[in-house]
Write a protein that binds this DNA or RNA. Structure first.
Lengths: 348, 348
DNA sequence: TTGTATGCGTTATCAA
DNA sequence: TTGATAACGCATACAA
C-alpha cells in the first residue's frame, strides 16, 4: 500500500528479504509454476509483495526464460479512426484473455513488414500474428518476410497468419472467394445483371480473391464481367470514392456496383450521391465485411458478414498452442446479408 | 543472410566472436550511444551481425538498462471494429516514429485499469499513455490508479494522459466543454430552440464535460435545458439508439438532438428512422468527434471536429521528452462543422 | 520443500 | 578506444 516517492522498482529480492525467505522461494511463490511452497511462506511472500507494491519485471523474466509472454501483431496500416476489423478481432480476444498485444503497422508494404517483424522479433514475444497484407505475386520482400518469420519460429516463437492461405505457418483464413461469390450469386438472384466491380488494389491478395469470387459467382449465373468491368482502386473509402468517379466518367451501364469492402462501398456511395444519383433507386451498391460502424448508413448496406471476432479468437488460440508438426489451418466463412442498398430489380 | 534452421537466437556474443572483438565492443558498435568504435571494428561487427542475422534482445536490454524503449497505452474498451479515435491518433503517430506500442483495454473500469497499469508497469515501458476513461467523482479505484501511475513515474517511467485535465501527469486535453459549447451556440444560430441532449454515462468525465458544454452554450443564448432534457445512456451506438427510443417514449418536444459523440448520434439516427421520422426534416441531430468513417452517413452529420491525430502526436512527444518539474499541459480545441443533419430552422 | 549457485543477453564500470 | 568484470532481475538445476 506504500507509494515510494523514491525511484527504484521493488525487486523480487526485496520481497524475499521482507518475507524472510530466499529469492527462489519468493519466485516460486509468485511467478513459479507448480505450487511447491509451504502455505505459510506462500502467504508471507504474497503479503510482502503487496506491502512493497512488487511487480514482476517481465523483461527479466523474458531473459531468464528465453522468451516473453506477450503477443505481437502486424497490421497493414492505420487509417485515422477506422481500424481494421482483423486487428479489432484479435484485440478483443486478447482483452478477454487479459493479454497484452504489441501492435505495429507494416504501412502496407512487405518491405516495411520485414523490417517490422525483425523489430518485433527482438522483443522475443510468444507469438507474432500477421494480419493480411500479402500480394498476389510474391515479391522478393515477401520472401524475406517469410524468412524472417521462419527464423522467429525456429527460435521457438509462434507465428500465425490471418487472412490469406498459403504461408508456411498456422493460418486463420477467411474464404474471400467464397464470400464474394455467394454475395454475387445472391444479387443475381435479385435480378441484377449489369455490374461493375470496384476491385481495390490489383496486387493485394485479399482484393484479388474477392474480385475473383465476384467474377466466379456471376459467371455461375451466366454473367460475364469484361476486364473493363473491374475498376481498381485503393482499399479504403477514398479509393471507393475515386473508383465511383471513374465509373461515372466512363458512363458504365451498371445497375449494381460490387465493392471489395464496405469502406470502399461507402466511398462509392458518397461519390454517386454527389453526382446526384438517388440510391438505391439509381444504383445498387454492396460491399464485404459487415463493418458494424456502417450498419446505420442509409441505405443500409448489403454485404457479407465476415466472422472477424471468431477469427481473432482462433488466431489467439493457435498462437497459444504449441506449434504442431504441420501448419494448421482454420477456415472461416461468411455469409451474405442483403439489405436496402440492393432492393433488387423486378425484371427478367 | 542465413536462416538457421536450428533453434537458438543469435546473441551479441556470437556476433562479437565472429567479428573477433569483445562483446562490449560489439555492443557499442550495434546498440551503443556515442560512436567510439574504430571504423574497422564498426564495419566488421555490422557485417558479422548481418551475416548471422543478429537481432538485439530488447528484453535483455531492458533489464540491463533498467527500462525498455516501447510505449504502452491503456484504452477504454474495444468495440468490434470501431476503434477509439484517441487510440488511432496515438497509433498513427507511433507508426510515423516507427515505435511499437503495447495496447491493453481497461474495459471501461477504473478497477480494471488499475490492474492493467500494474501489468503494464511490469513491462517497464518507456511511457504509459492513458486514454480517457475518468469519471466525474474520483472513486477509490481511480485514486489507486493514480497511485499506480505515480509509482511508475517515480521509477523513471513517463506518464501522459489524454483527454481530461486534472491528473498529476503530463496531459493532452481536448477541451470538451468548449467544443460542445461552440456547437450548441452555432446550432442556436441556425434557429434551433427545443433541444434534447443525449448525455452518455452520467459518471464519465468526458461525457459530463460535453453535456456541461452543451448546456452552457445554450444558456449563453438564453435557452435553458431542464434536467429532464438530458438523457443518459451508453457511450456508444447502442447507447444512442436506446436514448433516442427513450426520447420518443417521453414524446419530448425536441427539434434538435445534441449527442455527446458521433457514434451516439448515429445510434439515435437509426432509432429515429426506425420510428418513421424523416431526417433531418423531422429531427436534427448533431454529434461530436467528426469520426471520418461516418462522414458519409446520410444525412451528413453535423459535429465538432476534434484533432485526434494531433492529440496522438502531442501525447507521443510528451512521452518521449524527459519529465519536467511540473506536469505539462497541451490544450487542443476543436471546431464545429455544420452539415446536412442540421439544416436549420427558418423560425423566430 | 528450501536455499545456493549459476545462467540468460545486454549494458555499465573501470582498468589497461 | 578496448576489453575483462560486475551488475540487471529473475528462473532453475542441483544440492541440502
Amino acid at each position: 500500500m506504500e507509494t515510494p516517492s523514491s525511484s527504484t522498482p521493488v525487486t523480487l529480492e526485496d520481497v524475499a528479504r521482507r518475507a524472510g525467505v530466499s529469492p527462489s522461494t519468493a519466485s516460486r511463490a509468485l511467478n513459479g509454476s507448480a505450487r511447491k511452497v509451504r502455505d505459510e511462506y506462500q502467504s508471507r511472500v504474497h503479503a510482502a509483495a503487496a506491502e512493497l507494491g512488487y511487480t514482476a519485471n517481465t523483461a527479466a523474466q523474458a531473459v531468464a526464460r528465453g522468451r516473453g509472454d506477450h503477443l505481437a501483431m502486424v497490421v497493414n496500416g492505420i487509417n485515422d479512426d477506422y481500424f481494421s476489423p482483423v486487428a479489432a478481432g484479435v484485440l478483443k480476444a486478447a482483452e478477454a484473455d487479459d493479454r497484452m498485444v504489441t501492435m505495429i503497422s507494416s504501412r502496407n508494404s512487405a518491405q516495411q513488414a520485414t523490417r517490422v517483424v525483425s523489430t518485433l522479433r527482438s522483443q522475443r514475444p510468444r507469438a507474432i500474428i500477421l494480419a493480411g497484407g500479402r500480394s498476389v505475386t510474391s515479391t522478393v520482400w515477401e520472401e524475406r518476410l517469410v524468412e524472417e518469420l521462419a527464423a522467429f519460429q525456429s527460435e521457438g516463437g509462434r507465428v500465425v497468419a490471418i487472412s490469406e492461405e498459403g504461408m508456411p505457418f498456422d493460418t486463420v483464413s477467411l474464404d474471400n472467394v467464397a464470400a464474394a461469390s455467394e454475395l454475387a450469386a445472391a444479387l443475381v438472384g435479385l435480378g441484377y445483371r449489369r455490374v461493375t466491380i470496384l476491385g481495390g488494389p490489383a496486387d493485394a491478395r485479399t482484393a484479388h480473391d474477392r474480385v475473383q469470387g465476384f467474377v466466379a459467382g456471376l459467371a455461375g449465373h451466366g454473367i460475364e464481367v469484361p476486364p473493363s468491368g473491374v475498376i481498381h482502386c485503393g482499399f479504403d473509402r477514398d479509393g471507393g470514392y475515386a473508383a465511383a468517379g471513374e465509373c461515372l466518367r466512363r458512363r458504365m451501364p451498371a445497375e449494381l456496383v460490387l465493392a471489395i469492402s464496405d469502406t470502399v462501398a461507402v466511398g462509392a456511395i458518397a461519390r454517386f450521391r454527389e453526382a446526384g444519383l438517388s440510391l438505391p433507386a439509381d444504383m445498387a451498391v454492396a460491399g464485404i465485411d459487415d463493418v458494424t460502424v456502417l450498419r446505420d448508413v442509409a441505405p443500409a448496406l448489403t454485404t457479407v458478414r465476415l466472422p472477424w471476432p471468431e477469427a481473432g479468437r482462433a488466431a489467439l488460440d493457435l498462437a497459444l498452442q504449441p506449434a504442431g508438426a504441420e501448419p494448421r489451418l482454420v477456415r472461416l466463412t461468411g455469409h451474405a446479408v442483403l439489405r436496402e442498398s440492393t432492393p433488387g430489380i423486378g425484371g427478367r
